[in-house]
Amino acid sequence: MKRAGRSIPCTSAGFPRCAQKANTVFHMQMVRLSGNRELQRVLANLNARLRLVCWVDMADWCGLTSAHHSKVVTTLAPGDGPGAATAMRDHISRRRAQATEAARKTILRRYAPS
């Protein structure tokens, strides 16, 4: 993963953490580009709250998330705002259901008896 011209190494042992960082960086950059400071604050707060859920669920959704992010970037780069907005809405709607299921699994793993 690259960040500000630097590469963040992703080893198999560190993959979930690296993928989570890449996801967080992507979303924060998209929000920064919007110029909406309140949305930046809300997203930073949400990222902090969801860190455990994202880490537990990372292996299942990383490839799909990367494909969604690529779609957003490839529509945004040439200036296709409406296309990028559609791609981001699609990404968010798909991830909402997955995040809900990941939260359920995380709670069960943490608190339910084996």
Score class of each variant (00 low, 15 high):
1 M>E: 01
1 M>P: 02
1 M>L: 03
2 K>M: 11
2 K>H: 12
4 A>D: 01
4 A>K: 00
5 G>K: 05
6 R>T: 14
7 S>T: 10
7 S>M: 12
7 S>Y: 04
8 I>L: 13
8 I>H: 09
10 C>M: 11
10 C>T: 15
10 C>V: 13
12 S>V: 02
13 A>N: 03
13 A>H: 00
14 G>Y: 09
16 P>A: 01
17 R>A: 10
18 C>I: 08
18 C>Y: 03
18 C>V: 13
19 A>V: 05
19 A>I: 04
21 K>D: 13
21 K>R: 13
21 K>M: 13
22 A>I: 07
23 N>I: 03
23 N>E: 09
23 N>M: 05
24 T>N: 01
26 F>T: 07
26 F>N: 06
27 H>C: 13
29 Q>R: 05
29 Q>V: 11
30 M>C: 08
30 M>S: 06
34 S>C: 05
34 S>L: 05
35 G>V: 07
35 G>C: 13
35 G>D: 03
35 G>L: 11
35 G>S: 09
36 N>R: 09
36 N>Q: 07
37 R>D: 06
38 E>F: 13
39 L>C: 02
40 Q>F: 05
41 R>L: 13
41 R>A: 09
42 V>M: 06
42 V>H: 04
42 V>S: 06
42 V>R: 07
43 L>T: 06
44 A>V: 03
46 L>V: 11
48 A>T: 02
48 A>I: 02
49 R>P: 00
50 L>E: 14
50 L>P: 02
51 R>L: 13
54 C>V: 09
54 C>D: 15
54 C>S: 11
55 W>F: 06
56 V>N: 09
56 V>C: 09
56 V>T: 12
57 D>I: 03
57 D>A: 05
58 M>S: 04
58 M>A: 00
59 A>R: 11
61 W>L: 12
62 C>M: 15
63 G>E: 03
63 G>D: 07
65 T>H: 13
66 S>L: 15
66 S>F: 14
66 S>P: 03
67 A>H: 08
68 H>M: 02
68 H>K: 00
68 H>Q: 07
69 H>T: 02
70 S>H: 09
70 S>G: 10
71 K>M: 14
73 V>P: 02
74 T>V: 03
75 T>D: 12
75 T>M: 12
75 T>V: 04
76 L>W: 04
76 L>T: 06
77 A>S: 07
80 D>I: 11
80 D>Y: 06
81 G>F: 14
83 G>F: 03
83 G>D: 09
85 A>H: 03
88 M>Q: 10
90 D>R: 07
90 D>E: 03
91 H>C: 15
92 I>E: 15
93 S>L: 12
93 S>E: 10
93 S>Y: 06
94 R>Q: 10
94 R>S: 11
94 R>G: 14
97 A>L: 04
98 Q>N: 14
98 Q>E: 13
98 Q>S: 06
99 A>D: 14
99 A>Q: 08
101 E>P: 00
101 E>T: 10
102 A>D: 06
103 A>K: 08
103 A>E: 10
104 R>V: 15
106 T>V: 10
106 T>N: 01
107 I>N: 02
107 I>T: 11
109 R>N: 10
109 R>K: 09
111 Y>G: 04
113 P>F: 07
113 P>H: 00
113 P>M: 01
114 S>T: 14
114 S>L: 14
